[in-house]
Design a protein around this nucleic acid. Sequence first.
DNA 1: TATGAATGAGATTTCATTCAT
DNA 2: GATGAATGAAATCTCATTCAT
Lengths: 227, 227, 227, 227
Amino acid sequence: MAMTKRGERTRESFRDGARQVIAQKGFLRMTISEIAAAAGRSPASFYNYYDSKEDLLEELADEFRADTLKRQQIAVEPGTPLYPVMRAAAAAYWESYKTHLAELVGVFQVAMVDDRFAQRWRDIRVAGIETIKAGIDRAQAAGYCPAIDPWLTAGALGSMFEHFCYVSLAQGGAFSHRSVDERAAIETIASIWFHAVYWTEESAPNPTFGKASESTEHRGELATPST
Amino acid sequence: MAMTKRGERTRESFRDGARQVIAQKGFLRMTISEIAAAAGRSPASFYNYYDSKEDLLEELADEFRADTLKRQQIAVEPGTPLYPVMRAAAAAYWESYKTHLAELVGVFQVAMVDDRFAQRWRDIRVAGIETIKAGIDRAQAAGYCPAIDPWLTAGALGSMFEHFCYVSLAQGGAFSHRSVDERAAIETIASIWFHAVYWTEESAPNPTFGKASESTEHRGELATPST
Amino acid sequence: MAMTKRGERTRESFRDGARQVIAQKGFLRMTISEIAAAAGRSPASFYNYYDSKEDLLEELADEFRADTLKRQQIAVEPGTPLYPVMRAAAAAYWESYKTHLAELVGVFQVAMVDDRFAQRWRDIRVAGIETIKAGIDRAQAAGYCPAIDPWLTAGALGSMFEHFCYVSLAQGGAFSHRSVDERAAIETIASIWFHAVYWTEESAPNPTFGKASESTEHRGELATPST
Amino acid sequence: MAMTKRGERTRESFRDGARQVIAQKGFLRMTISEIAAAAGRSPASFYNYYDSKEDLLEELADEFRADTLKRQQIAVEPGTPLYPVMRAAAAAYWESYKTHLAELVGVFQVAMVDDRFAQRWRDIRVAGIETIKAGIDRAQAAGYCPAIDPWLTAGALGSMFEHFCYVSLAQGGAFSHRSVDERAAIETIASIWFHAVYWTEESAPNPTFGKASESTEHRGELATPST
DNA sequence: TATGAATGAGATTTCATTCAT
DNA sequence: GATGAATGAAATCTCATTCAT
């Protein structure tokens, strides 16, 4: 129970080792031996600190929660244009995700199998989605984006944040392993977020198919985004 | 190599069994025995048809590809308002994802571990993202959404489609296991997609923080979406 | 579930192997690997038939129960002198114990740790003790051994049967590994059983200490049986 | 080697801890960690005092031996009726077993696996059995119980003492976990012991089956004590 | 003397895969 | 084609024991 400095260091090396391995091959395929190897310890030693992989993952998730709380508060002066604020929020999210990629991947994977983690996963997501929804509520109160469902919209935008970060950071981008321009990526999600919320019936254009572009190649069909 | 009718039936029962099990507990945790049990066959029989779980998954992915192609063509008359077209495309995507949830989950999971599947996963995604990008290109040609990066925007929107579908269909929604209103969900992603693309510098509002709403409770901070 | 002849043979070889190993080193120290080695199979194969050592032990215990039932009935003509009948019963008990030494040792050991087996152990014992008690009841009805507690006496005699058999058969006798004269051993427990029950106040002698024997060496003390 | 007071106290706490744990779950399943936990010490500390569980058990057995010696001497006046003397001896045995339940269970269990302990176990038993045998010898010299084998009879009675005490004290009685009436239990074994030895050809009744009792329900069979 | 930490050795258990029928 | 049976390989976990402090 008592924990010396040496023990604390070892515990940390297991956490770090696990984060490395999760990043490489995911949580479900990760073995205790691999964690131990990455930590430079014996597999048996692992059990002096954690009961199981899942136990360690819970600790990582808690750590994530604590660390993320710090990033949450962005002081804003009333009257500040909203777009830069939203970009800053998106950047904070991106940074948080980048720092905690391993644990998020881990929780996500285990959530598919373990009900307790499924609940934890929902809790983590909902915390983020709620702040998006709060923003939508304020926008609607101010007359923007009437008639959209705030919860569903917040959920969809949260999904975008999550998965775009995941694909960009864990999978090395949508298209290849070339790394992503982070500044541009943040700008992108901020822009989608902003425009999805800040529009009115009058402001929104009403384009029609095939008019604007004189190109005929797409006329007559619109491919659905496949997967 | 030749395949009798009986063999074809067995092969199909393995595919169906695997789809069931993947939906329940994911691909990585699924065992051959479980596939066989769900198929009502013996594990040994599995090897008469497939070399491994991954082999079967490849077949499922191909099946998905073929089936999705059918849904791709949506005939559109020039001059049709774009929003309903985009909603139809979103609905087609949703339907496709719903039908092929199991294989998509499987490919997604294995992509984290296996390079060949990582490539396949990228191919599947890119096919969808490309059509979104084509739409953005046309919108920009018509003067909409200047200065955004078409690839990144398409990637982010694709991520939203994918993950929102996944969370809604596989996890039972963001908040609980209550099932999702599919019509409203489709409307939501269509709306985000549309407004993210169809705006111009003049049309876009320029809201500021704390002005519109007189509520003071949020003044001075904007929580970032945590997670 | 279905079981071919080959499977039946393997299952049996695990049972036999386990019985050998239990006889050598007891149940608690026995490993699955040892069972498998004794059975000439791989440890993995064990799990095709049993979930655990305990599972196998339950089957052995059931087998014992079934086999012992056959030995239970001894036809006796009314008017037969009782002593030979009791000797036959003792002999049957001895034989039963000898045949099923392994499972009895196993159940006994696990009973110390596992509540379910403790109950099973009690059930097995009580079945034997009840028939002893029934005999005592009849003896008391006929005026013998008044005032003794039938349950406790039956319990004590049952303990004697059990443990004397165990010590004689499993431990190779009280004193060394020289094997025991089985006929004499059976005669011994039959004699104790008989005389413990068939006496009356008048028939019983009332010896006093130190009188009969003139030897003085033991006068003045009576060592208790130490353990 | 020299032992400070502090050391002596620690050593004792390990002994006491071990006795507790053995009583709960037997010797074979007991771990060093459990001993240490029960002793309120660290597992590492254990090795300052003992080489192994078995080492400690040897010490417990020695302690038992020393303590039991004190109970052995019962001063008896010549001419005293024997039955009360034998009851006192039985009571002393019972008390001794009760006090040293843990070490006896431990030695008994290890005897099944370890030859050195098998020998020690035999030594402990034989010490008790020898005094029973000495009594039988004297009884036979006085004309009682002719023709029985003194060694085997003493062995069987010793088994009864041992196992009845074990079942009553460690297993909570033959039938359930209700505790046993100790006075009645002692009376019971004393009675069996006495009547097994003090009878003569003339004194012994010669009952026959089915005569004395007119009940016909058991006529024609005598169930053997199963197990 | 005491103990937190570390670990080798080994037991249990699972599972993909092969093979004989 | 189908499947019961068998097993090597590997993962999880336990625990006696050692060692540095």
